[in-house]
Every structure is written in structure tokens, then in C-alpha cells.
């Protein structure tokens, strides 16, 4: 049966879904996010990493899958790749925070940086090298890596928003009836 104590969890999940949708919209629509010296912010990566860190590996997997699917709708290249990648890093960040690391801003920076840089290098290698047949480093150094740097630099905003939502809308602990 529906419990009122479960309502914050439902609201939290809806809010996180809305954040993923908004992040996908901002990332995939030209003109909504500022382009700084030609570098674009890849907003979905820090969103999924932070959700994985705050909510656990399963939530990271699910929200990563959703965000990646939205990203695949607009992206060219291998279809389904972004869904797989974001699901993987969402799940991985949840596992790392659960077993090895703590849920801190520095941890978020580490995971986000590695995720963004790995994505940029892999995508550059898969698209520029495989299609052009030439190691076009200018694209890597001028577009992809600056995008990873910008993404990491602004990821703290995403971290604080998601952490605030997750900590505010936790499932209330059941009351313990005092024995008189």
C-alpha cells in the first residue's frame, strides 16, 4: 500500500529524472549552455556520476541509462554507446563510493575528471581517427579535452544540487514505539 513516508523518495526520483532530462536538453541544444573558448560542457557526465555517488550503484545505472538514451537520440556515431557508457560510470561511481571512497566534493572531481577525459579521448579516437585515418591532435587538444576540463570545472554545481536533493528527500526512518 502507498505510504506517506515513501513520498519523499518518489519526489526525489522524479526530481532526479527531471534533472537528467534538463541536463540532456541543455547539453544537446545549441545556444542554451555557454561555449567557452570553443569548449562545450558535457553536462550529463557529472549528473550521472553525482547521482551514482549519492544514490548508489543501481540508481546510477538506471539514471545513466536514461541520460545516455537521451544523449543517443541526438548523437551520431555508434548508437547505444552513450547509454552504455553513462550506465557504466553511474554504476561504477556508486560502487566506488560504497566500498572505497567517501562521498565528498574531491571524490566527485576525481571520478568526474576520469570519466570525462576517458569519454573525450575514446570518442575522439573512435570518430576522428577511425574516419579520417589520421591522428588529428588538434581536434583532441582544441575541442575534446577542453570540453572535459570545462565539464569538470563546473561539476561542483551539479554535485551540490544533487546532494542537497538526495539528503533532503531521504526516506524517513520508521518510528520506534517506546515501551512504557
Amino acid at each position: 500500500m502507498f505510504r506517506l513516508e515513501g513520498l519523499p523518495v518518489v519526489i526525489k526520483r522524479i526530481l532526479l529524472f527531471a534533472i537528467v532530462v534538463v541536463a540532456a536538453m541543455l547539453q544537446n541544444t545549441d545556444g542554451l549552455l555557454p561555449v567557452i573558448f570553443g569548449a562545450r560542457i558535457i553536462l550529463l557526465i557529472p549528473v550521472v556520476v553525482c547521482i551514482g555517488m549519492c544514490e548508489g550503484e543501481m540508481s546510477g545505472l538506471v539514471y545513466g541509462l536514461i541520460g545516455g538514451a537521451f544523449w543517443d537520440v541526438c548523437a551520431s556515431g555508434i548508437d547505444g554507446f552513450h547509454g552504455f557508457y553513462l550506465a557504466f560510470i553511474g554504476c561504477l561511481s556508486g560502487i566506488l563510493v560504497h566500498f572505497i571512497m567517501r562521498n565528498r566534493l574531491l571524490t566527485q572531481y576525481c571520478i568526474c575528471t576520469v570519466s570525462a577525459v576517458f569519454y573525450c579521448v575514446f570518442y575522439w579516437f573512435a570518430t576522428v581517427y577511425s574516419q579520417v585515418g589520421d591522428m588529428n591532435y588538434s581536434k583532441l587538444l582544441g575541442f575534446y579535452l577542453p570540453g572535459a576540463v570545462i565539464t569538470t570545472a563546473f561539476s561542483f554545481i551539479v554535485y551540490f544540487i544533487i546532494r542537497f536533493i538526495c539528503s533532503s528527500l531521504k526516506e524517513k526512518e520508521p518510528r520506534i514505539n517506546s515501551v512504557r
Partner: peptide, 24 residues
């Protein structure tokens, strides 16, 4: 060239993308 997940996501995501393009 579309995975089943992407096809479903496209149907859900399309109105949001249209709204974003309208705002821009």
C-alpha cells in the same frame, strides 16, 4: 541503425528537445 532503447528514448525526449529549441 538505432537501438531499441534509443528509439523509445527518442519518443519520450522529442517534446523536451522541441521545447528547448523553441526557448533558444
Amino acid at each position: 541503425s538505432e537501438s531499441p532503447v534509443t528509439s523509445i528514448a527518442g519518443v519520450i525526449y522529442k517534446p523536451f528537445q522541441k521545447a528547448a529549441a523553441y526557448i533558444v
